[in-house]
Amino acid sequence: MDATVHRVRGEVVLGRSSKALRLAEHIDSVDALDREGRARFYLTLTRAHLHQRNQPGAGLALMQADRASPEEIRFNVYAQHLLKQAIGQDSVTVRHDLYRLAERAGLL
């Protein structure tokens, strides 16, 4: 599974978000990763969703990252950048949840 997680990250870095999200669908158990690994995986998915302008997908991935490791959202500069970017896309569907997450992270 670690190899697939790294492939997902690589595809996102290369700008191939659709391929990354398709690969991520085949990862059976993210729970096998440690807390930080799970959070980083979900942050990678957040980035992929943001590239596709899918704010609800990005919001869900951010909430999963927060569930895995709230410290990552609160103290990781990259996670905070992704959260700000997601809020900037401003979809009514997840606006409230993203603002709550931003408040808990100390961004608002």
Score class of each variant (00 low, 15 high):
Arg22Tyr: 08
Arg74Ala: 13
Leu101Ser: 03
Gly59Asn: 12
Thr46Ala: 06
Arg100Phe: 09
Ile73Cys: 03
His26Tyr: 06
Gly37Glu: 10
Gly59Thr: 14
Gln64Asp: 14
Gly59Gln: 08
Leu14Tyr: 11
Leu43Pro: 12
Glu71Gln: 15
Leu101Tyr: 01
Ser91Asp: 15
Glu11Arg: 04
Gly57Met: 08
Arg100Asn: 15
Asn76Cys: 11
Val8Ser: 02
Leu23Ile: 05
Pro56Gly: 14
Gly10Arg: 14
Thr4Asn: 08
Glu72Met: 13
Asp31Ser: 11
His81Cys: 03
Val94Ser: 09
Tyr42Arg: 05
Glu72Arg: 10
Asp90Tyr: 13
Gln52His: 06
Ser91His: 15
Arg7Ser: 04
Leu83Phe: 11
Glu72Asp: 10
Ala68Thr: 12
Glu11Ala: 05
Val77Glu: 13
Gly88Glu: 00
Leu45Glu: 08
Gly10Leu: 05
Gly57Ser: 06
Ser69Glu: 12
Glu103Asp: 13
Asp90Gly: 09
Arg67Asp: 08
Gln55Phe: 04
Glu72Lys: 14
Ser18Val: 03
Leu82Gln: 08
Ala58Met: 04
Arg35Thr: 12
Lys84Met: 02
Ala79Asp: 07
Asn76Gln: 09
Arg7Leu: 11
Leu107Ser: 04
Glu25Leu: 06
Ala105Phe: 02
Glu11Ser: 04
Ala39Thr: 06
Arg22Pro: 05
Leu107Tyr: 10
Asp66Trp: 13
Glu11Gln: 10
Thr4Tyr: 07
Val5Cys: 01
Phe41Asn: 00
Asp97Tyr: 14
Val8Thr: 11
Glu36Ile: 12
Ser91Val: 13
Gly37Cys: 12
Asp31Ala: 07
His51Tyr: 08
Gly106Lys: 02
Ala105Pro: 05
Arg7Asn: 09
Glu103Gln: 15
Pro70Gln: 11
Asn54Ile: 07
Leu60Ser: 07
Asp97Ile: 06
Ala3Thr: 06
Ala48Trp: 00
Lys19Ser: 07
Ala65Ile: 09
Leu107Glu: 10
Lys19Pro: 01
Ser69Lys: 15
His96Pro: 00
Gly106Thr: 00
Thr44Leu: 12
Lys19Met: 08
Ala39Phe: 02
Lys84Ala: 08
Ala20Pro: 00
Gly10Tyr: 05
Thr4Asp: 09
Arg40Cys: 07
Arg22Ala: 08
His51Asp: 13
Gln55Arg: 08
Met1His: 03
His51Arg: 12
Gly15Phe: 05
Arg38Trp: 07
Ala102His: 12
Arg100Tyr: 07
Arg22Glu: 13
Val30Asp: 03
Ala61Ile: 04
Arg67Lys: 14
Arg74Thr: 11
Ile73Trp: 02
Met1Thr: 00
Asp31Leu: 07
Thr93Asn: 11
Ala48Cys: 09
Leu43His: 10
Ser18Lys: 13
Leu60Gln: 06
Thr4Ala: 13
His6Glu: 13
Gln89Met: 11
Lys19Ala: 00
Arg100Pro: 01
Ser18Asp: 14
Asp34Ala: 09
Leu62Tyr: 00
Ala105Arg: 10
Arg7Pro: 06
Leu108Tyr: 12
Thr93Ile: 14
Arg67Gln: 10
Ser17Trp: 03
Arg35Phe: 13
Ala3Pro: 05
Glu36Tyr: 10
His81Gln: 15
Asn54Ser: 13
Gly88Ala: 11
Glu72Cys: 06
Val92Ile: 15
Leu21Lys: 02
Arg47Thr: 05
Gln55Ser: 14
Arg53Gly: 06
His26Trp: 10
Arg22Cys: 07
Ala79Leu: 10
